[in-house]
Structures are given as structure tokens and as C-alpha cells.
Design a protein around this nucleic acid. Sequence first.
DNA 1: CCAGTGATGTCCT
DNA 2: GGACATCACTGGT
Length: 193
Amino acid sequence: MRTDWGWLTLPTDAAARRLLGCDLERLLDGEVLRARIVETEAYDQDDEASHAFRGQTVRNATMFGPAGHLYVYRLYGHHCCNVVTGYAGYGQGALIRAVEPLEGADVMQQRRTGDERRLATPHLTNGPGRLCQALGVTSSLDGHHLVEDPLRLVQRPPLESSQIVVSTRIGVTKATERPRRFHIRDNAFVSRR
DNA sequence: CCAGTGATGTCCT
DNA sequence: GGACATCACTGGT
């Protein structure tokens, strides 16, 4: 079934690339936070590294639903989030690994804990757990449809492929050789290896 | 480099 | 219901 999220109803890798350069718009305590997606990773149920690999569970159910919803999970005490892509019934999504603040960076800094080293560019939002902290993304947003407040995904024009760097994923212990990490070339907020 | 972190899934009783 | 392993991370040394 096709939704109005046709541009996300793509094989995971294509969708993960397509998300680069798009914006996340977060309404939080009456403030508007905007950030540009600069780094993603692709996961799907045929990928040993994916939460969806061993089938649907309570935790990963959102990944098996329709595209355009947010899958939020906790890992080592941190939150991480995926944009669900593809067709309902086939578990897949794109992990948002890093964003670049466009608006409300001061509010993001208030939400991040710790000393000013962690608040400075690019440490504010250059990791999946960090950006969730900065944007106030928690488990309560698991399953949230990204066409409505308080968190919207705003489509932007696709990037030239020359602007996109492909590499292996960070932190995975399985399928480590698969080239499923995508990031914008020469962007300061892309996470380190 | 490595310790802390906490939810979740699996396998037992 | 309990014990244990697992884990797509972060921050400080």
C-alpha cells in the first residue's frame, strides 16, 4: 500500500540516502527546533545487524509499520531513533546518526547535560544518542507519525550523489562489512569513527 | 582505552 | 517471576 510518503517508500538504502539534507522540526515547550539530517544508516529485516532481523517484537514493532513513523529505542541508557521506510510488513528503517542545528541551538544546548565542551560544535548533535537528547526525543515518540507536531520531517531536494559519502556502519557487531552508512561530504556534524 | 548504562529478549524454574 | 546476555552509545581518561 502506497502512502503519501512515497519518497520514503523505497528500499532502505535509497531512503537513507534520500533523508540526507531533510529537516527535522521539533516543537518543544513552545520553542521551535530545526535540524538538518547529515548522517544516516540503513537497517532492514534481512540485515543481521538490524533489530528487525529476528522478527517483530514489542520493542521493534514500529519498524514493521508504515513509512514515515519514528522508531525510538533505548541503548546503554540512551535514546536512538530511526525513520521507518519502505512498506508496512517489511521491517526497515534509517537510523539518524547526526544532525546539524539550524534553529534553536540554544535550547538544544540547554537540553544537553554536561560542560561546555559537549555543547560546542559539533558535539551538540553528532551522535544518535546526543541528537535525541538535544531534540528531546524519547520513547514517548516511538511510533509517532512525522507529519504532525510535535516532530515533523520536512522533505528537501535530494542531494547530488557526489555530495554523499558511503561507508560501513559504526558500532555494529554483525554485518560489519556492509556499506550502509551515508553522510554528507565535509559536514562538521558527521560523527567520528 | 574502557566503565557506566538500562531496557529488552530468551531461557529457565 | 528471575537470571543472564546482549546492545545501532557516551563521556572521561
